[in-house]
Design a protein around this nucleic acid. Structure first.
Lengths: 203, 203
DNA sequence: TCTCTTCCATAGCGATCGCTAGTAAATTCG
DNA sequence: CGAATTTACTAGCGATCGCTATGGAAGAGA
């Protein structure tokens, strides 16, 4: 007979750091410097937590990164909901790209996109981490495709519309803006790119 | 009084490997796995050259990568020439993006773009390597901007055209397609994105 | 207070990192 | 043929990598 973990009073010495705040710091470190190129030593400095505590709290570096990745990507349901609520697929996609432009040029965060840069490449040992990032991107693409298809079915977009192509374009622009942001492009420049990238859509 | 290096007969033991072919192999290794995440051990295996010979022939890992980067990017004059010869800026940009789509999905090379992925992120020690990649991207952007401006000046594009925005969009799409290619998108998908990305341009 | 549980921090594990000293081998020059 | 010069290879340098064994500290329950 097991106790329900959430109800069981915790015994023993309590955690001396905020697990969630430390994860946030780890996410920012990975965002800044990438998965393989952020060392445990970098993470202990950024998180203010010693190595053994990191391993006790998160498992290993890979699991810590995967948790940071999920935290960065946010709840997939939120994106789905935002896309569902938007009046049109065009509005939804334009909003997503604009949000990305702002996110990549925020003052309180590293420039660019963690999803685009932190696992863009790497050794064979990190192939599963790159797959996890690819999975997140595929999930976003799927949301976009479905929203576009909905507008096609509703007659808001011409029947010859190719949802996959428009979704790929939106993803490419989004991920490409990350490179521009890292190269120093300012927010207005990215917003202009975001706007220009929507030229192929019917108003 | 120094001898002219190219005319001086070389004495001593000759190189036992093709310096240029080995550099090509190194470029492919960096293309596949990134700068910091490709180890010297990986490079010796890929190039078929032992570590001391690599250091004697190329200097150190950083200089080897910079040489590989220049080899990947090609002669900047070639891009300039291609853009000059194209009938319109639109043709030049469309051609560049199409070429990228094909390059990123070639069978004989890694997927994606070395320029986009090999130094997308990394440690502080590699900041100058990232700067070198950024410099290559800036050079490409400059070529695009100047070609667009030429068409604006010639009245081929409307005077309100923003060359910088169109160039940034082209760069973003190009670099973003690298992510799509790494995620498994096939050549046709990338070519469709390339075509769709030109929708904002006047025919 | 005493026990039990859990966490913290020092110290260091084996492996790999980028890189090189030292020596043998291969060529040209005299 | 030496002598000089340049490269190749074995072996291993110090540093850092991701990760963990260990013993003491800090809380909860009895």
């Amino acid at each position: 007979m097991e106790e329900i973990p959430t109800l069981r009073r915790k015994t023993g010495r309590p955690l001396s750091f905020d697990r969630d705040a430390a994860l946030e710091k780890a996410m920012l470190a990975f965002w800044e410097s990438g998965y393989e190129t952020t060392s445990i030593s970098d993470l202990t400095a950024a998180m203010g937590v010693t190595a053994p505590s990191i391993y006790a709290a998160y498992g290993d570096k890979k699991r810590l990164f995967l948790e940071a990745l999920r935290r960065y990507a946010g709840d997939p349901g939120d994106l789905e909901a935002a896309f569902s609520c938007a009046p049109t697929a065009r509005d939804a996609v334009a909003g997503m790209i604009e949000n990305a432009a702002r996110l990549y040029t925020g003052d309180a965060t590293p420039r660019g996109c963690l999803l685009a840069s932190a696992a863009a490449t790497g050794s064979k040992d990190a192939a599963d981490v790159r797959d996890a990032a690819a999975q997140e991107r595929r999930a976003i693409r799927s949301v976009i495709v479905r929203r576009i298809q909905r507008d096609v079915d509703a007659g808001l977009l011409p029947p010859e519309t190719a949802p996959g192509v428009l979704a790929d374009l939106a993803l490419a622009v989004t991920q490409g803006m990350s490179v521009l942001a890292r190269d120093g492009a300012d927010r207005d420049a990215l917003l202009a790119v975001a706007h220009a990238s929507m030229a192929g859509w019917p108003e």
